[in-house]
Amino acid sequence: DETGKFLVLSLYDYQEKSPREVTMKKGDILTLLNSTNKDWWKVEVNGRQGFVPAAYVKFL
């Protein structure tokens, strides 16, 4: 199980638009929880879990 094993870097600021999403700032290091959807990845940032656009992050 690779859940929570990968870190990704936020390339852009992102403001959550729904309760299922999370806000991140450019340069944030996020824990990747799920990347099965090619468009939206589930991450943990600042103690919160939610989705961010996959195009806004990259693997470290």
Rank of each mutant, 00 (worst) to 15 (best):
D1G: 14
D1E: 14
D1H: 15
D1I: 14
D1P: 14
D1S: 14
D1M: 14
D1R: 10
D1F: 14
E2H: 15
E2T: 15
E2M: 14
E2N: 14
E2S: 14
E2F: 11
E2R: 13
T3E: 12
T3D: 12
T3P: 13
T3Y: 13
T3A: 13
T3F: 13
G4Y: 13
G4N: 13
G4I: 13
G4R: 15
G4D: 11
K5M: 11
K5G: 11
K5H: 13
K5A: 11
K5N: 11
K5C: 15
F6R: 15
F6V: 15
F6D: 09
F6C: 15
F6E: 09
F6S: 11
L7C: 12
L7H: 09
L7M: 11
L7V: 08
L7F: 14
L7Q: 10
L7T: 08
V8H: 03
V8I: 09
V8D: 00
V8Q: 01
V8G: 08
L9G: 02
L9F: 09
L9I: 15
L9C: 11
L9E: 11
L9K: 09
S10K: 04
S10E: 01
S10T: 08
S10V: 15
S10I: 07
S10Y: 06
L11F: 05
L11C: 10
L11K: 06
L11I: 11
L11P: 01
L11M: 10
Y12S: 10
Y12R: 13
Y12L: 10
Y12I: 11
D13P: 05
D13Q: 03
D13N: 08
D13M: 04
D13F: 05
D13G: 05
Y14K: 01
Y14V: 02
Y14W: 10
Y14P: 03
Y14T: 02
Y14I: 02
Y14S: 02
Q15G: 07
Q15H: 12
Q15K: 12
E16H: 08
E16C: 13
E16F: 06
E16P: 15
E16T: 08
E16G: 15
K17P: 04
K17H: 08
K17Y: 05
K17S: 11
S18W: 06
S18V: 04
S18T: 12
S18F: 06
S18H: 11
S18K: 07
P19A: 11
P19T: 10
P19M: 09
P19I: 10
P19E: 12
R20T: 12
R20F: 14
R20G: 15
R20E: 12
R20P: 05
R20Y: 14
E21G: 12
E21T: 09
E21L: 06
E21P: 04
E21S: 07
V22H: 02
V22F: 11
V22R: 01
V22S: 01
V22M: 09
T23I: 04
T23M: 04
T23W: 04
T23Q: 04
T23G: 09
T23L: 03
T23E: 03
T23F: 04
M24W: 02
M24V: 10
M24E: 00
M24F: 07
M24T: 04
M24H: 01
M24N: 00
M24K: 00
K25C: 09
K25S: 09
K25Y: 09
K25P: 01
K25D: 03
K25I: 07
K25L: 08
K25A: 08
K25F: 09
K25R: 12
K26N: 03
K26G: 04
K26Y: 05
K26D: 03
G27W: 05
G27V: 01
G27R: 02
G27H: 04
G27E: 03
G27L: 02
D28E: 12
D28N: 06
D28T: 08
D28F: 05
D28C: 08
D28A: 07
D28V: 05
I29F: 06
I29R: 05
I29D: 00
I29K: 06
L30C: 11
L30Y: 08
L30S: 02
L30G: 08
L30K: 00
L30R: 00
L30V: 08
T31E: 09
T31H: 10
T31L: 15
T31C: 12
T31N: 08
T31K: 13
T31Y: 12
L32P: 00
L32Q: 00
L32V: 12
L32W: 03
L32E: 00
L32G: 02
L33H: 04
L33D: 00
L33F: 03
N34A: 09
N34H: 07
N34E: 14
N34K: 07
S35L: 08
S35N: 13
S35W: 15
S35I: 10
S35D: 11
S35G: 10
S35E: 06
S35A: 14
T36S: 14
T36A: 12
T36V: 10
T36Q: 12
T36F: 10
T36D: 15
T36N: 12
T36M: 11
T36K: 11
N37C: 10
N37E: 10
N37V: 04
N37H: 11
N37F: 08
N37M: 08
K38V: 10
K38H: 11
K38T: 10
K38I: 09
K38P: 14
K38R: 12
K38M: 10
D39M: 13
D39I: 14
D39F: 15
D39N: 12
D39E: 12
D39G: 09
W40N: 01
W40G: 00
W40V: 02
W40E: 03
W40H: 02
W41Q: 00
W41A: 04
W41N: 00
W41M: 04
W41T: 03
K42Y: 15
K42H: 11
K42D: 03
K42R: 10
K42W: 15
K42E: 15
K42T: 06
K42Q: 12
K42C: 15
V43P: 00
V43K: 00
V43G: 00
V43E: 00
V43I: 08
V43F: 01
V43W: 01
V43S: 00
V43L: 02
E44M: 09
E44H: 04
E44P: 00
E44F: 06
E44I: 08
V45Y: 09
V45T: 10
V45N: 10
V45P: 00
V45M: 11
N46W: 05
N46E: 09
N46M: 09
N46L: 08
N46V: 04
N46K: 09
G47R: 04
G47K: 04
G47F: 04
G47T: 04
G47I: 02
G47Y: 04
G47S: 05
G47L: 04
R48I: 08
R48T: 07
R48K: 11
R48F: 07
R48G: 04
Q49A: 11
Q49E: 11
Q49M: 10
Q49H: 08
Q49I: 15
Q49S: 12
Q49C: 10
Q49W: 07
Q49L: 07
G50S: 01
G50D: 00
G50E: 01
G50C: 03
G50N: 01
G50A: 02
G50V: 03
G50Y: 04
G50Q: 01
F51W: 14
F51H: 04
F51G: 01
F51E: 03
F51K: 02
F51V: 06
F51I: 06
V52R: 01
V52A: 02
V52P: 01
V52I: 10
P53F: 05
P53H: 03
P53L: 05
P53I: 05
P53G: 02
A54I: 04
A54R: 11
A54V: 05
A54K: 07
A55N: 12
A55W: 07
A55V: 10
A55D: 09
A55Y: 09
Y56M: 13
Y56V: 06
Y56W: 06
Y56K: 07
Y56N: 05
Y56F: 13
Y56C: 12
Y56T: 07
V57S: 00
V57F: 05
V57P: 00
V57N: 00
V57Y: 03
V57G: 00
V57D: 00
V57A: 02
V57Q: 00
V57E: 00
V57C: 10
K58T: 15
K58M: 15
K58H: 09
K58A: 14
K58Q: 14
F59L: 15
F59W: 09
F59D: 06
F59S: 08
F59M: 15
F59H: 09
L60G: 04
L60M: 11
L60R: 03
L60Y: 12
L60N: 05
L60D: 04
L60H: 08
L60F: 12
L60Q: 06
L60C: 12
L60A: 07
L60I: 14
